[in-house]
Amino acid sequence: MTAEQQTGRKMATRSEVIHCYSQLAACLALMVKLARAKEWGRLPELEIQCAGIVERLKVVEPMELLDSEQMQEARRLMERIHADQDEVCQLVKPQLEKLVARMSFLQQQKNLDKIYGLPH
């Protein structure tokens, strides 16, 4: 491989790292938007997509060092990602608590029905 090809390969890897961070930030921004609108149905699909991007980052990120401009961009994206993650968690947590409470109630109901011989 020539030096020019190696440089091109490094540039592609570097840009892929930033591209992955950009994809992750966009995915989390959409999750925030959906959670604010209480559209919970698409969140699991997007969570899977985010996990895939993170797995890809684990592969490509260690391959190359980013230059200072790219590091700044990566930091900016990571700050946005963390802020959006926090917001999604804050929006989803009450919904999960309601779901757990409802499931507990249904389990208690099922147990009572079983004790008293009622069909469930």
Rank of each mutant, 00 (worst) to 15 (best):
R36E: 14
A29W: 04
V88R: 07
I81W: 07
E4I: 06
M103A: 08
M31I: 02
L34V: 00
G41P: 03
R56C: 01
Q5N: 02
L118K: 14
V54R: 15
C27T: 15
R80M: 04
R75W: 03
L118R: 15
V54Q: 14
V92D: 06
E39F: 07
A74D: 00
M1K: 07
K110H: 09
K38T: 13
R56K: 08
E47M: 10
P94W: 12
S68R: 12
R14A: 06
D84H: 12
K10D: 06
E16S: 10
E97V: 14
L57M: 09
L65F: 01
S68P: 03
E45C: 05
K110N: 08
L34F: 02
R76V: 05
N111T: 12
M1A: 11
G117D: 02
A25T: 11
A25H: 13
Q95T: 09
Y21H: 11
R36K: 14
A51N: 11
Q49C: 09
T2A: 08
M78N: 12
V59R: 13
G8R: 09
T2I: 07
L118C: 01
Q70K: 10
E55N: 08
A25M: 12
V54W: 08
K58I: 03
Y116W: 10
Q70S: 10
E64S: 04
L91S: 05
V60N: 07
E39R: 15
E79L: 08
V92A: 13
W40V: 10
T2L: 10
E39Y: 11
K110E: 09
S104M: 06
Q109S: 02
K98Q: 09
